[in-house]
Design a protein around this nucleic acid. Structure first.
Lengths: 204, 204
DNA sequence: TTTAAATAAGCGAATGCTCACTTATTTTTG
DNA sequence: CAAAAATAAGTGAGCATTCGCTTATTTAAA
């Protein structure tokens, strides 16, 4: 943006942009992608529909931009206190904890991403995740193999066993019930239990 | 339906109904739930929009009905050759194989269900799955515990570790790539490798 | 210090278009 | 013929987007 070259202009109300994004996430989580509209969003955020088009070219760009923003936030969060050359069990535990903590703090973000996952908006997210996530966690896996703390495996098999169970537990928690229990709450103890099983599977 | 009470009437063209359902799945997988419309579907299936409303009350019921239909088909398929009192490793292997085979035969169905999973249409599916799936697989789990072939676990932890990795592998296959590899194909060997890890995790 | 020029932010009220759904009519069967 | 199936041609509601305008802010000339 060329903002700082222009000396004569009215500054943007940052709060407005924030509120638009926040309300968009809320609306999409509450009513799904269909049922989400620009006019509805404008009313909900307390701005004019036209204002939204100052910030975003069109509906497509609005949703895309929010999508990538949330995904970036999640990724940054889940790499906190993590380094690819950590001990395998410790590193995996940090990853699990970070993801769980993020989801506890921002449950809407999680649900939002899940909704977006099977739309064409998610393609840009995948591209971003592939570069950042893949490199760091790929390195982590190779290091652990070298230290003989992890069975040598194709990346996909490793990923599926190492992380998919956690996401499934979070899904159960989100929908509040699984196929047998009518109410399910994920906590630290359950997470540790599942992580224990996963480590057992992956350690030599 | 009262079809067989009426003696004078023109019979329905069963092929039309089938084609409507089939094309609906194709369209939703290709373009997502947004971008899917009744008029478009009608053109694509070679019928009039009004015809669709002879079979279904409204768009909502159309999608719901297809959703539940596909889910029922999947469930039936994945319980083939399975019984709750099978040996644990054998039973789990049958489950994995069935799911994998179904997905190989009907990849569209799989993608369709994934798209629907985070919409309100899925609630009816969850209800159906809870009753049928939960009872059979819950029994399987308890039997395996009794026979000491499975560590005692909360159902959700068991489910997450036992099945989530398979679904993740199928997702990687469907999208054709993972976070590090630009092309990924799931086959029997990879499935067996992952299943081996899962069994290692779950056996005492 | 005042004031006017300049400019982006912001808005309410359309606009045209697409969509789910309906109606009036024709076709196909027993 | 009777009756349901099937349709072509709508209809009106709701949608994304835009237009013409006002407001807020800054700077620089007077």
């Amino acid at each position: 943006m060329l903002t700082y070259f222009c000396v004569e202009m009215r500054p943007r109300d940052e709060h407005k942009e924030y509120k638009i994004r926040q309300k968009a996430i809320e609306l999409i989580v509450a009513e799904g992608l269909d049922g989400f509209g620009v006019n509805k969003l404008a009313r909900s955020a307390g701005v004019s529909p036209a204002t939204i088009y100052i910030y975003y070219k069109d509906k497509e760009e609005l949703i895309s931009s929010i999508c990538v923003g949330v995904a970036e936030k999640m990724m940054t969060f889940s790499l906190q206190n993590f380094s690819p050359d950590m001990d395998f069990a410790d590193g995996l535990r940090v990853q699990w904890r970070n993801r769980l903590e993020y989801f506890m703090q921002c449950p809407l973000d999680m649900e939002f991403i899940e909704i977006m996952r099977y739309t064409h908006f998610y393609e840009k997210v995948t591209a971003m995740l592939t570069v950042n996530f893949g490199q760091v966690l790929g390195a982590f896996m190779r290091n652990a193999e070298k230290k003989q703390q992890l069975i040598p495996l194709p990346f996909e098999v490793y990923w599926a066993v190492a992380y998919a169970p956690l996401y499934q537990l979070i899904k159960f928690h989100n929908q509040g019930n699984s196929y047998v229990n009518s109410s399910f709450k994920l906590d630290d103890k359950l997470m540790e239990q599942a992580l224990g099983l996963v480590l057992k599977a992956l350690k030599p």
